[in-house]
Computed example of a mutant assay.
Amino acid sequence: MKTDWLTEFHRVLLIAALGSGTVCVLGTVATVARDAVAVTTDATSADVIVTDPTVTQLVLSAAGALPTYLLATAMLVLLHRLVGRARRGDPLFSGGTVRKLRTVGWLLLVGGPAASLLEFLARFALSGTVGTGGNYAEFDPARIAIWMVTGFGMLAVGEIIGRGQDLRAELDEVI
């Protein structure tokens, strides 16, 4: 029996989107419901445990990871819809496929660095709330690079499909 990889990938994307969405919700609930928050305060990654966090500390703690999970969930949902569309019709050179690929590309290209920056700023602000010598947070430029390469990759695939769409239209006119 031949495996239908498009169907399998569609299922994987659904499971991943549901998992990522669940992590968003449960992570936020767990952060808000916690009676303690761990705050990294220096380059040695020493954590200070705040046993009675303020609302601001809880919000900043949640904001330290939530943007990436929200972005990943949005990307997975968009890809799930794109693959679902592909399973139902002639997706390869359609305008809808090109638009969805470009949407995912721009989401990753712009949203990825924005999410990383928001998380950095939240962790930086959170560290300043514990009063142990100023603000501190690590910024990982590799995360930005990964988001951007992935975003450019999706835009490039969208461009390839768009060019195929143009060639197909030309061929239809010739025939």
Results as ranks from 00 to 15, higher is better:
residue 144 I to S: 04
residue 140 D to G: 10
residue 121 L to N: 09
residue 149 V to S: 11
residue 140 D to I: 11
residue 148 M to C: 12
residue 140 D to Q: 11
residue 151 G to V: 02
residue 134 G to V: 06
residue 111 G to Q: 02
residue 146 I to T: 13
residue 109 L to C: 08
residue 117 L to W: 14
residue 147 W to N: 06
residue 149 V to N: 05
residue 138 E to A: 15
residue 154 M to H: 14
residue 154 M to L: 09
residue 130 V to A: 04
residue 121 L to D: 05
residue 152 F to C: 11
residue 112 G to N: 06
residue 146 I to H: 10
residue 128 G to F: 00
residue 142 A to R: 11
residue 135 N to D: 07
residue 124 F to R: 14
residue 120 F to G: 10
residue 130 V to N: 07
residue 113 P to N: 01
residue 134 G to C: 04
residue 108 L to Y: 09
residue 151 G to Y: 00
residue 121 L to T: 15
residue 144 I to R: 08
residue 131 G to E: 02
residue 111 G to R: 00
residue 143 R to P: 10
residue 130 V to L: 03
residue 115 A to D: 01
residue 138 E to C: 08
residue 147 W to G: 05
residue 127 S to C: 05
residue 123 R to T: 14
residue 108 L to W: 07
residue 151 G to L: 00
residue 142 A to W: 11
residue 155 L to E: 00
residue 118 L to F: 15
residue 126 L to A: 08
residue 128 G to S: 07
residue 138 E to T: 15
residue 123 R to E: 03
residue 135 N to I: 08
residue 123 R to M: 03
residue 143 R to L: 03
residue 155 L to S: 09
residue 143 R to I: 10
residue 153 G to M: 00
residue 114 A to D: 01
residue 150 T to A: 08
residue 150 T to I: 10
residue 142 A to P: 10
residue 149 V to A: 12
residue 154 M to Y: 12
residue 125 A to D: 04
residue 118 L to I: 15
residue 107 L to P: 12
residue 110 V to N: 08
residue 140 D to P: 13
residue 139 F to A: 06
residue 120 F to E: 01
residue 135 N to A: 13
residue 119 E to R: 13
residue 147 W to V: 05
residue 152 F to I: 12
residue 138 E to Q: 13
residue 118 L to W: 13
residue 136 Y to Q: 02
residue 127 S to F: 12
residue 108 L to C: 08
residue 152 F to W: 08
residue 141 P to S: 00
residue 123 R to N: 14
residue 121 L to S: 10
residue 149 V to H: 10
residue 144 I to K: 07
residue 148 M to V: 15
residue 116 S to T: 15
residue 150 T to E: 03
residue 145 A to F: 10
residue 146 I to E: 01
residue 109 L to E: 00
residue 153 G to V: 06
residue 113 P to L: 02
residue 135 N to W: 11
residue 133 G to M: 00
residue 136 Y to F: 15
residue 145 A to P: 13
residue 132 T to V: 13
residue 137 A to L: 06
residue 148 M to N: 09
residue 146 I to Y: 11
residue 110 V to W: 12
residue 124 F to G: 07
residue 137 A to D: 04
residue 107 L to S: 06
residue 117 L to T: 15
residue 128 G to R: 05
residue 136 Y to E: 01
residue 109 L to H: 09
residue 153 G to T: 09
residue 146 I to R: 10
residue 143 R to A: 11
